[in-house]
Design a binder for these strands. Structure first.
Lengths: 339, 339
DNA sequence: AAAATTCACGAAAACCTTTTCGAAAAATTC
DNA sequence: GAATTTTTCGAAAAGGTTTTCGTGAATTTT
């Protein structure tokens, strides 16, 4: 019933455990005769060395833990895919966990992964963690010398390697682009106003407006909570102020917004332009196809995995780095052409 | 630089390892005085028991391995989400791997996970594995007494717990439904003709046709390879035969088909109806919104995790079960109303 | 034939933790 | 004060593997 161990094989042949171990490693210390019979027996019974024992022995697991807030979000799926690819290429397995945007779950997961079952951790903060600004659990990790890479949703309080999207620039650039196409009454719809990412995009947006001589109007930034009615909020927005462009900070909201505008008989992009964040699978297929900001999720994942493995495998001191990944605007049909 | 162990704490206080271990477990064997000073020291230095050592000791890891062919496919993402939820609720962590539809990668992953780092495995076969019909690696797993649950893409050659979508019935029902709406020149577009799933759907389709007195015409089943041009294949199909409905066996293809038909000036559903498989995020948002077959991915994931954990934790003998999960047709605007 | 070398294997430590059992010291009972 | 109990701690095993070192036997060298 139980798994075959070296000890089992040893007692079967009346030899020592070391002899079996060496035989299976084809060591020259063992006579040909003994080696082959042990090797054959092992192969026949599908012997596999117990990895847990090896992990303990080697003090390394060749695994990295990944904690993402939400796997149903396409950006994170892409990052995850990138991590998996790169980590695998470098001989590491992935242990993946979902924090579900919950601080508690993130905490539990971090504690679990920090207890030796992985060689390092890649993490993007849950929204609740960012809202509470409670990062003690991560500080513990650092003090326990667990290598860590933070991506996308990061915190200044922890010093470690980080990869961030240039969300400030992204907000700035998309706003600039909309201004160039003749829009200047630009609204933002944010579902992530608690996260660093959301705030940075809004800041970039403000800067672009100011630079072009338009003053920033806080009322044009609509915050949508978890169970709030987007349709209602958009109606409210449009009734109260004149709007000629909307920036939606996630893909779902961008698509929803498009549909709501269509329902209201508003033509996109003639009356109102739309730009969304996260270039996922939806935006290409709706009509008009949506202009989106790509954050290059897969690339970020690959980068994160490589940086982490570098740190795990490098013996000496290494300064922490923060990589800034630029976004790309993918122009489709929900915005007017640049003149 | 290294992690704090019981031994370190022991030598710091000049006591034995057992004393430290017991102190941290608040054992009554240890004097209050000694206990508190050790507990405080441990807390201060963020001591965490090494999980790898515990795993070895307990011969259990409280982790389950998940191998899916493709994480970018929404069905698998959903299953994954379900597994994560249920496994977590029962105290298990997930180690997730992607086989990328490759036999080789599946093999490697199975070997890795089978070596003691997880208590059980949940797996859906890669397409290549199914095409080759090579399941030796899974047989080894069984012989090594690693509990396993196969889902969606399964094989008869391995006896273990399985969860399958009733793809035969799904193919049958969608065809029946299309027939009822007045379509009887129904084509199928399959990107998964090598997989059990794809074949079953086509079989169900055949049965429905025969039952209604239409004879099955193999030429109406279009197989689309990885790099083939869908647009071309659809044109070919429509030029050669009269078609009034198309069943697409995955979501991407359904959406693509819709766009191709629109491009050709064919109205959906008046001239041609479309039904797609996998009720993901795309189908709701295209116009007309697509009628889709939902396979209840999240539910399947939850079921898989629960069955696996049951088997892991149950001591005695338990017969293997195969659960058949029924699909649901989600009617939207790409099919005509039932009369 | 004695000395040196090679061969073939076993013992034991190390990785870290928990737990059982034993034992010394302290406290209690008579 | 002697006998008994309680308190408090340590030694050791177990989990599975790898690796270093040691040892006896066989072989080779002189």
């Amino acid at each position: 019933m139980k798994k075959l161990t070296l000890k089992d094989i040893a007692s079967h042949f009346g030899v020592s455990i070391s002899t079996v171990s060496k035989s299976l490693k084809d060591s020259s210390e063992i006579s040909r005769e003994v080696k082959v019979k042990i090797q054959e027996y092992a192969k026949e019974h599908h012997y596999k060395p117990n990895r847990v024992a090896l992990n303990l022995l080697n003090k390394t697991t060749k695994a990295i833990g990944v904690i993402v807030p939400n796997i149903l979000n396409y950006f994170f799926t892409q990052v995850f895919y990138g991590i998996e690819q790169s980590a695998n290429a470098r001989g590491y397995t992935i242990i993946s966990c979902i924090s579900d945007e919950s601080y508690k779950k993130e905490l539990q997961t971090v504690e679990l992964l920090g207890s030796g079952i992985v060689d390092g951790i890649i993490l993007s903060l849950s929204e609740e963690t960012q809202a509470r600004d409670n990062t003690e659990h991560l500080q513990n990790l650092i003090e326990n010398h667990v290598p860590m890479v933070l991506f996308d949703r990061v915190t200044e309080k922890i010093s470690c390697d980080k990869i961030v999207v240039d969300d400030f620039e992204a907000g700035y650039n998309t706003t600039k682009h909309l201004l160039k196409t003749g829009c200047n009454k630009i609204a933002i719809i944010s579902t992530i106003y608690n996260s660093s990412v959301g705030k940075l995009r809004v800041e970039g947006y403000k800067k672009a407006l100011r630079e072009s001589g338009f003053n920033y109007d806080g009322k044009n930034v609509v915050e949508v909570g978890k169970n709030e009615d987007l349709q209602l909020l958009i109606s409210l927005l449009l009734d109260n102020r004149e709007i000629d462009a909307i920036i939606a900070l996630d893909e779902m909201t961008a698509v929803d917004t498009l549909n709501i505008l269509k329902l209201k008989g508003i033509t996109v992009p003639d009356e109102i332009s739309i730009v969304g964040f996260t270039n996922g699978r939806l935006s290409k297929y709706v009509s008009p196809a949506l202009t989106m900001v790509s954050q290059h999720g897969k690339y970020i994942g690959e980068l994160a995995a490589n940086i982490l493995v570098d740190r795990i495998e490098y013996e000496g001191e290494m300064p922490f780095t923060t990589k800034l990944v630029k976004t790309t605007l993918i122009e489709r049909d929900s915005t007017k052409k640049d003149q």
